[in-house]
Computed example of a mutant assay.
Amino acid sequence: MKRVGDQNEMLAGRSAAEFFRLSRRLALLIAPAIVITAVLMLVLGDSFAGSVAFGIAVVVVLALVVVAGLAQSKAKFKEAREFYAGYTTLRGVHPAVDQVDPRSGRVIRVAGEPFLTRDEHDSRTALVRQARSDA
């Protein structure tokens, strides 16, 4: 039976938590990119709509959408792989498996334990990371 702080064998590569974080960050850039493009179209009119700058803006928005979607898909795939490996790096999901800090690979919530509050999560994450640096 694992305990909080125990090292967990993790799958190779980025964790589901890291892919979800990347996906969210990219998604947050989409709306401002669309707004900036729309404002430029309103201010500059047809001269902007027919320009190279408009084409670049559209390509940037589409690229953000595609890359955010790919990161989200990769995150869901990695989430399933982690679950079948007996752990998760995500908060608030999969109570039947251990929750592991994605950076240190140490258990921060054991399987069957209630989900952690934000404060509990932050406290345990700091604790296991400190234990790792002390070792």
Rank of each mutant, 00 (worst) to 15 (best):
E18G: 01
S23D: 06
R103A: 13
S47W: 07
A85C: 05
R132V: 15
S47F: 03
V4G: 04
F19H: 15
A31R: 15
G45P: 03
E79K: 14
V60E: 08
L62H: 00
E113D: 14
T117A: 11
K76P: 00
G13R: 04
A80W: 02
G105Y: 06
H94K: 12
R81W: 01
Q130S: 12
S15F: 04
V93Y: 05
F77K: 14
I56C: 03
L70P: 00
D134W: 03
V110N: 05
F54E: 01
Q72S: 11
V43N: 02
G45R: 14
A68S: 15
G112N: 10
V67G: 01
T125G: 06
N8V: 11
R109M: 09
A85G: 05
M41G: 15
P95N: 11
P95C: 13
P114L: 07
G112R: 09
T88V: 06
F54S: 08
K74C: 01
H94Q: 10
A63L: 13
M10W: 02
L62M: 12
L62Q: 06
A135Y: 04
M1L: 09
L62I: 04
L70C: 03
A135L: 12
V65N: 00
F77Y: 09
L40E: 13
D119G: 00
L62W: 01
A135S: 14
V58H: 01
A85V: 06
V65E: 08
L127T: 08
S15V: 05
L40T: 08
A53R: 04
A80S: 10
I56M: 12
S73I: 04
P32I: 06
V67K: 01
P32D: 08
A111M: 08
G69P: 02
Q7P: 09
Q72F: 14
R124T: 12
V61H: 02
V97H: 10
S15R: 08
A63V: 13
A111F: 07
T88K: 06
I34G: 02
N8I: 07
V67R: 04
L62D: 01
A131E: 15
R124V: 11
A31L: 14
K76A: 15
S47C: 00
E9T: 13
L64E: 06
Q72K: 11
D122Y: 02
L44T: 00
E82K: 04
G69F: 03
N8W: 02
Y84L: 12
L127H: 05
A16W: 02
H121I: 00
R21H: 13
A31F: 07
